[in-house]
């Protein structure tokens, strides 16, 4: 054996932060509100769970200010499962993020699903050892979040609706803006950065690589195995399912089915098999019928 002595460790680098998102790829991250739900999610094949007090559909229904979850609830979920546990902080609420880091959650979601705490600034995510995932509706928003230190991006969609339309819109927007950058000349990238309101070095990097510098998941409205297949075929590298599982009539079976459809997203026969006999999907809301003040995805700057 070559190495018996103490080895210097460099903890919580950007590489380890972005690396955990690489490990989650091809997986399903499920919202859970109790340790029991977390165990069901893990047994059904969740790659991680998002611990929160209310799923987005209930936040939408109840109204009021939605905040970070009670630490006791988060700890209960951490003790219940061995997979990564994520939790949400309000946009700009760095003290909530500090609490979540002190709890050693594996990923912090600076989330538009909660009520924003700052109308101009997001959290300085470079100041944290814990990695952050942030939502985006377009490439500029994704690159601003990465510039602030986010190690993973999720397209926002419209949480708590069960309507996939905004998830598709946002994912397509991000992907098509990436393709647009790849065909620009080097002298055009500064202007593109200005148009996207994104940092130029990241714009250059995306133009060269043809992809985001971090993993891109899809969130907001996924309710069925076919929804998961759709967004994976549109270029998502994994999915978040919020209300879609535990607001359905048979959460355990639906969770397994969405996991299976995410793995076999390109095989319609497998997606068909996974879609069969699942019972009722979550009670859904057509996003286009929501008033502007009811939309969550415009939150974020």
């Amino acid at each position: 054996m070559s190495t018996n002595g103490h080895i210097a460790r460099d903890e919580s680098t950007f590489t380890t932060k972005a690396g955990l998102a690489e490990m989650l790829k091809g997986g399903v991250i499920m919202d859970v509100v109790t340790p029991e739900q977390a165990r069901i999610a893990e047994a059904a094949g969740a790659a991680a769970v998002m611990a929160l007090e209310r799923v987005p559909a209930d936040i939408r229904r109840d109204g009021g200010v939605a905040r970070m979850s009670d630490p006791e609830m988060i700890k209960g979920i951490q003790e219940a499962v061995s997979i990564p546990v994520m939790a949400k902080a309000r946009i700009g609420h760095f003290a909530e993020a500090q609490v979540l880091e002190a709890l050693e959650v594996d990923y912090i979601d600076e989330s538009e699903v909660l009520t924003p705490a700052d109308t101009a600034n997001h959290i300085d995510k470079w100041a944290f050892k814990a990695p952050f995932v942030c939502g985006a509706t377009n490439l500029g928003e994704a690159l601003r979040r990465i510039g602030e230190g986010a190690a993973m991006i999720r397209s926002k969609g419209e949480a708590g609706t069960g309507d996939i339309v905004n998830a598709v819109t946002h994912l397509r927007k991000i992907r098509s803006e990436i393709r647009w950058l790849t065909v620009l000349g080097p002298e055009e990238l500064a202007s593109a950065a200005k148009e996207l309101q994104a940092p130029l070095p990241l714009v250059r990097q995306v133009a060269a690589d043809g992809k985001l510098p971090v993993v891109l998941f899809c969130a907001g409205g996924i309710a069925t195995p076919a929804d998961a297949s759709l967004v994976m075929q549109l270029g998502a590298e994994g999915v978040f399912v919020g209300s879609g599982i535990f607001k359905s009539s048979n959460p355990e079976q639906r969770a397994r089915a969405i996991v299976e459809a995410t793995t076999h997203y390109a095989d319609p026969e497998r997606v068909a098999a996974a879609s069969t006999g699942l019972g009722a999907a979550m009670e859904s809301i057509e996003t286009s019928k929501l008033g502007a003040e009811q939309l969550l995805s415009p939150r974020g700057w």
Partner: peptide
Amino acid sequence: RQLHSFEASFELD
């Protein structure tokens, strides 16, 4: 947990 994820360098036989 993730906060203790790390990078390191060492010889490998």
